[in-house]
């Protein structure tokens, strides 16, 4: 082993260990926290002004509904149409969860394995980057040709969109070698496996959460996009359907549901990250 030993170095003495955390890792996860009732009130006030102002302006200028529906009409559509939209929301969630579960699992396993073999990692990384940057939506028509108009092409597209995102972030996490902590485990005689589970994995956790968050949001985009390409169900299908029928209030109601879904996903992972990986923040 003597030939490949690294010079014992302790990087970043002052900062102590990493400086990467769930709250400072990327623009997605960082942001000023809301602290007081006043701030909450101010945020609500802005919403009231924007929504109320839009309502008012659309009324004043007599903007036709097919150009831009009034917020009140959207709210009404959301309530009255929801029973019809709900099953489609269910379909989208099934695609999202199934695809994300498959993609994230494969991505995590690949990241864990690949980072153990630096040479393999070097070879694979450009291809993963290719998967990350290629919009998986482009493959949907092809997938539909092969798998039909059911769940399968959408789930595959979601998995392909989310998996590489999860993998590339998790791999960054696993690669964060803290020589001191690994040496510590080794000084107790830890095996490679033990080092992975007891040092590398916990150290990678903040980055894994970032990957899961970004991956799930990419998954949502891809699911909706795939639904718009073909097949008779799903929120994306509702969007194309409502817009072709010029039912704008219903259309915007679906958009609203999608925004809420995205925010829920973001908040979920943010809270999970805070709970399980906040030790660095």
């Amino acid at each position: 082993m003597s030939e490949t030993d690294a010079i014992p170095e302790f990087k970043g003495r002052a900062g102590a260990g990493g400086d990467v955390g769930i709250t400072n890792m990327s623009a997605l996860t960082s942001g000023p926290g809301i602290k007081s009732v006043r701030e909450v009130l101010a945020i609500l006030l802005v919403a009231v002004i924007i929504i109320g102002g839009t309502e008012l302006l659309l009324n004043i200028f007599q903007v036709p509904q097919y150009v831009l529906p009034k917020p009140s009409e959207i709210a009404v559509a959301l309530v009255t149409e929801f029973p019809l939209i709900a099953p489609h929301l269910g379909h989208t969630l099934v695609e999202l969860f199934a695809g994300f579960a498959i993609g994230a699992t494969v991505g995590l396993i690949l990241a864990g394995v690949i980072t153990q073999f630096p040479f393999a990692e070097k070879i694979v990384t450009p291809y993963i980057l290719l998967l990350v940057t290629t919009p998986m939506l482009a493959l949907v028509p092809l997938l539909i040709l092969r798998f039909g108009f059911g769940y399968e092409p959408r789930i595959i597209a979601v998995a392909l969109a989310a998996g590489p995102m999860v993998m590339i972030n998790a791999a960054t996490g696993f690669r964060r070698v803290d020589a001191g902590k690994i040496a510590l485990a080794r000084s107790y005689g830890a095996s490679t496996f033990q080092i992975f589970w007891k040092v590398r994995a916990p150290m990678a956790l903040p980055m894994i959460f970032v990957g899961l968050m970004v991956g799930s949001i990419f998954g949502l985009l891809t699911a909706v996009g795939a639904e718009m390409v073909g097949g008779g169900f799903g929120l994306g299908n509702r969007l194309t359907s409502y817009s072709s029928m010029i039912q704008m209030p219903q259309f915007f109601a679906v958009v609203l549901i999608l925004s809420i879904l995205g925010i829920l996903i973001y908040v979920t992972f943010f809270l999970l990250g805070k709970k399980f990986a906040s030790w660095e923040a």
Partner: peptide, 19 residues
């Protein structure tokens, strides 16, 4: 030849696991 149970190490900085 390798890590030995008879040897204890104290590292630069405390090297505690932050999690």
């Amino acid at each position: 030849t390798g890590p030995n149970p008879e040897i204890g190490m104290v590292f630069q900085e405390a090297n505690l696991l932050p999690w």
